[in-house]
């Protein structure tokens, strides 16, 4: 009798985040028990107490690095993971908490706490890939459930996940939606934002707010110029690019073009 091959081991790790991306896995209500049958969920503290120590075939990492301790922890996780996939805007771009990168973190702490002297936090929030090699980055704030299942399945099958890097505009066209910017003059980050959400903002009569981060070849400056013609001021343009993916290079550079000292408008 041949021994049953060991099932691949999955680990889910959390850094600075809202827990939403790992919750997306539990939100796969129809697929969860099938996924659990195909793999050993060896470490997933949000869902289970049990811990299988050692090495993991696939590590999903949520959240950004904001403490010295976490910068060390991710190195250990990388060393014990055959494949490491980052999930969500925090892990892939630093997340909303990377707004501190544009400010003085000591001022931030003093605004919240009576006694900020105890602070143990880094001045920046950085993506996992700034600290260790990452095998695949899955974007979104939060990630798409469909893309998450595809990513897990692809890595179990040893192939690249099918996750397009084109813009939200393509998804709008595929859904047959009328362009909110062309038809109604609503500013929209769709042309520079990576697809994956299913164009949900235009489908709800609002402009895309960029939660999947920059697409592969964004022309953010051209979009900003068009948004300015539609009536957005300098501060609004800066804030539009400075949100959930503020530290993603293409969005960071565009938001900085609209800082007071740099604005050419």
């Amino acid at each position: 009798m041949t021994p049953t091959p060991r099932k691949p081991r999955l680990a889910v790790w959390k850094f600075a985040s809202c827990d939403g991306c790992q919750l997306s896995l539990l939100d796969c209500e129809d697929e969860l028990l099938d996924i659990a049958a195909a793999i050993d969920i060896a470490y997933f503290p949000e869902a289970a107490r049990g811990v299988i120590r050692g090495r993991y075939d696939l590590s999903l990492v949520e959240g950004s690095v904001t403490t010295a301790h976490d910068a060390e922890r991710i190195r250990d996780i990388r060393a014990r993971s055959r494949v490491l996939v980052t999930i969500g805007a925090c892990a892939t771009a630093g997340g909303i908490q990377a707004l501190r990168n544009f400010a003085d973190v000591r001022d931030y702490a003093a605004a919240v706490y009576p006694d900020p002297a105890h602070i143990d936090t880094l001045a920046t929030s950085t993506p996992i890939a700034d600290h260790v090699p990452v095998d695949f980055e899955l974007r979104g704030c939060p990630v798409s459930k469909r893309q998450l299942v595809e990513t897990i399945a692809a890595h179990l099958a040893g192939r690249r996940p099918v996750v397009p890097a084109h813009s939200v505009c393509i998804e709008c066209k595929l859904r047959g939606l009328t362009c909110v910017m062309v038809a109604r003059g609503t500013p929209c980050l769709g042309p520079v934002t990576q697809a994956g959400c299913g164009a949900i903002c235009p489908a709800h009569d609002r402009g895309c707010y960029g939660c999947f981060g920059p697409m592969e070849t964004p022309n953010a400056a051209a979009l900003a110029e068009r948004a300015r013609e539609l009536g957005l001021g300098q501060d609004e343009l800066r804030r539009a690019f400075r949100s959930f993916n503020a530290a993603a290079p293409a969005f960071r550079e565009e938001s900085e073009r609209h800082d007071d000292q740099n604005d050419q408008g």
Partner: peptide
Amino acid sequence: EPPRFFESFLRGRAAIE
């Protein structure tokens, strides 16, 4: 849980955000 400073970075953002 590491801090994320929401109450700090909300300052200067539009209320509608």
